[in-house]
């Protein structure tokens, strides 16, 4: 039983980590009032750029930095279309997704099957020797350890800093924010760049730490799961931690059951997170609606 619990716990954390970074990316944009359905594409670009940079430099850290930058820059394409050209956010997001799928396939074509060492696993001294919990919690790559601080940091930035206040103000009522002397467009650009960086890192965790290889469309819908997770966590960074762990747990449980030969289809288990999100939304309908940033989906039109 002990090894099972250990691998289940460890697997939930590893699968949940890219989901968490992606969820925080989407959460930040949505707090500023921008829905980005193109996160899947951003993650793919991050994954492929991080992988290529790692192959050429031999350093996974360099790969990670490149992935973050690439994700941020790629998301600026979306920002330009949505903020400066005021295009429909859903259509622009889906377009960004298609663009990322194609671009990452083109960039990665020569690197399919390449080998890298990837992000090293770091053992936390002493704690890693604890029974069961030690190996499950304290033998991971740096991005896993950074996950909780980054989520807490996102909470702190959103709710305890002036910049976070303007992000939320723009997300609730851009006209009032503008009247109060903030520039909604500038805030949107900043948030979307930051979200792109997080999305790129999320993708890089897949290619540098989980799979340690590049394959076309390797995110397999995680960018969309993140959109669901934002709703599940009702636009709150700390609840996103719980959501990512739960969804990661579903992925991990599915892998474990397959390994054990349990005769329950993994696909039914995979449905759980989506059905759960829908159920949570339906039940908490009224409360969730209060949590939705009021100007979500609409972009500041200027004050004519």
């Amino acid at each position: 039983m002990a090894p099972l619990i250990r691998s289940l716990l460890s697997g939930s954390i590893v699968s949940g980590t890219p989901l968490l970074y992606a969820t925080l990316a989407e959460l930040l944009s949505e707090r500023a009032g921008v829905v980005n359905l193109g996160l899947e594409g951003v993650m793919l670009v991050g994954a492929v750029v991080g992988f290529i940079a790692t192959v050429h430099t031999g350093s996974a850290t360099a790969g990670l930095v490149a992935a973050g930058l690439a994700g941020g820059l790629f998301n600026l394409v979306f920002a330009f279309v949505v903020v400066s050209r005021r295009a429909n956010q859903l259509a622009a997001g889906l377009t960004l997704m298609f663009c990322g799928v194609g671009l990452s396939a083109l960039m990665g074509a020569r690197y399919v099957g390449s080998q890298i060492v990837g992000l090293p696993e770091l053992r936390v001294p002493l704690l890693a020797d604890l029974p069961i919990l030690g190996p499950a919690l304290f033998v991971h790559d740096a991005l896993v350890y950074a996950a909780v601080p980054v989520a807490a940091g996102a909470w702190w930035v959103l709710f305890r800093t002036r910049w976070g206040l303007s992000v939320r103000a723009v997300g609730e009522n851009p006209v009032a924010a503008f009247a109060a002397g903030k520039d909604p467009r500038m805030v949107h650009y900043q948030v979307l760049f930051l979200a792109g960086v997080l999305g790129g890192v999320a993708g890089a965790h897949l290619s540098l730490a989980v799979a340690r290889t590049w394959a076309e469309w390797m995110t397999a819908g995680r960018g969309f799961i993140a959109v669901a997770l934002v709703i599940f966590s009702r636009w709150h960074p700390l609840r996103a931690l719980a959501g990512a762990l739960l969804f990661g747990g579903a992925i991990s449980l599915q892998l474990q059951m397959q390994a054990l030969g349990v005769p329950l289809s993994p696909f039914l288990l995979d449905m759980l997170p989506y059905v759960l999100s829908l159920a949570v939304l339906a039940v908490w309908g009224g409360r969730a609606r209060h949590a939705v940033p009021a100007s979500l989906g609409r972009v500041f039109q200027g004050t004519q």
């Binding site: 330009f80 050209r85 295009a87 298609f98 663009c99 194609g102 396939a105 083109l106 074509a109």
Partner: peptide
């Protein structure tokens, strides 16, 4: 010898240009 999904870029570019052009539509 290009990956098949490369046309997604062409599709996306066409859409981006249209999206950027039809500014301000809901």
């Amino acid at each position: 010898a290009l990956p098949g999904s490369v046309v997604n870029i062409l599709m996306a570019v066409v859409l981006f240009v249209v999206l950027a052009r039809q500014a301000g539509r809901p």
